[in-house]
Amino acid sequence: MNTLHTVNKSPFERNSLSSCLRLAAAESSILLFEDGIYAALQGTEFSETIQTALATHSIYVLVPDLQARGMSLEQVIAGVQAVDYAGFVDLTTTHYPIQAWL
């Protein structure tokens, strides 16, 4: 099974996402949740980074955390896949190990 990387920090405030992308093996998956969702949005200084990473990783974003922050699915970068809490659980069962980038 492939690794699931989880990123819950804003890319503007911490380097969690940058380190994750630098060190994550190709084909591993990345879930953006909590303040990590800000990386999933179009039109930011990090949008291009995510677009590039989509070539080698499946990237997911947790929808309840998007909504809590006033963001909608329409603003998410094309190719980033939306998941709800049940989808989050599914990802944890279809990936191993799970690595949290705090």
Partner: peptide, 17 residues
């Protein structure tokens, strides 16, 4: 300033969380 601007984002809906 910085991520503080996100505090003022419209349409925040925390129900599901």
């Amino acid at each position: 300033v910085d991520d503080g601007v996100y505090q003022l984002k419209k349409q925040q809906d925390t129900k599901a969380t």
